[in-house]
């Protein structure tokens, strides 16, 4: 589904990603862990098409297409979803309008008719129930004044609405209370099929108890320095990153 080969990228002249290699197949869950500033969000943003970054080298193939050539909106419509680490607020734009535009763009891309207001509201209600999302949130402006946890829940709610092929969850667990974490994780699991894949960026093993990864990768200073099964996450939880750092140089 996603194939990253030797991806190097910089921001403002500073090289952040120094040669990432990653293969993700349909049906898989990959966790990416690593110390602060190691480049996890950078990788997520580059995959989503944020323009601040300069790709220096490498190839990314997503569902057979050269991902790096696609505009961010086409990447989204092709099934790539990013749950932002820091979702932005868009004052004055009601969540409902935003989501309706989003869902209908995705439908248009697939050659489907736009949903009627009634159909859309029905879909929205179903997904809100699934994530125990406060009804009132969708009447408010996009993320405006949402609490940290509400913002994260709102990201997963959007994911549920769009049902992406590849979801990248960038620290979706941070800011969620224990109950919310479980609900969100259950939501993500419910959306899981053999057709889609998930990248979970997290600092904590806790989330991985719920969303069980097939692979765990450690990103350190712009490189994947270690990969393993879910037991690697336990090891990291126990030992911290020092042993990897030390092993590195």
């Amino acid at each position: 589904m996603l194939s990253i080969k030797n991806l190097r990228a910089s921001v403002e002249g500073k090289e952040i990603l120094k040669g990432i290699n990653l293969e993700i197949k349909a049906g898989e869950v990959h966790a990416i862990m690593g110390p602060n500033g190691s480049g996890k969000s950078t990788l997520a943003n580059i995959l989503a098409g944020k323009s601040d970054y300069e790709v220096l080298e490498g190839e990314v193939t997503f569902l057979g297409q050269n991902l790096l050539e696609l505009s961010p909106e086409i990447r989204s419509r092709s099934g790539l979803f990013l749950s932002f680490q820091y979702p932005v607020e868009i004052p004055g734009v009601p969540m409902v309008n935003f989501l309706k535009a989003s869902v209908n763009e995705h439908r248009k891309f697939k050659g489907l008719d736009p949903l009627t207001a009634g159909e859309f509201l029905k879909l929205m209600r179903a997904k809100k129930d699934m994530l125990h999302l406060d009804t009132e949130l969708t009447n408010r402006s996009v993320n405006e004044g949402f609490s940290g946890g509400e913002k994260k829940k709102n990201e997963i709610f959007q994911m549920a609405m769009l049902e992406p092929k590849l979801a990248i969850l960038d620290e979706t667990d941070s800011g969620l209370d224990i109950d919310a974490l479980r609900v969100v994780a259950e939501g993500v699991n419910a959306l899981k099929t053999t057709e889609n894949a998930t990248i979970v960026v997290t600092h904590y093993q806790r989330l991985l108890d719920y969303i069980v990864p097939d692979f765990v990768h450690v990103l350190y200073k712009g490189r994947i320095v270690k990969s393993g099964g879910k037991e690697l996450a336990f090891e990291l939880e126990e030992k911290g990153y020092d042993w990897i750092k030390n092993g590195e140089n």
Binding site: A48, E73, F98, S102, F109, V142
Partner: peptide, 12 residues
């Protein structure tokens, strides 16, 4: 820019 990118990321 971040707001525009957020919208882009949702297909807009």
């Amino acid at each position: 820019e971040d707001q525009i990118f957020y919208c882009n990321q949702r297909g807009i």
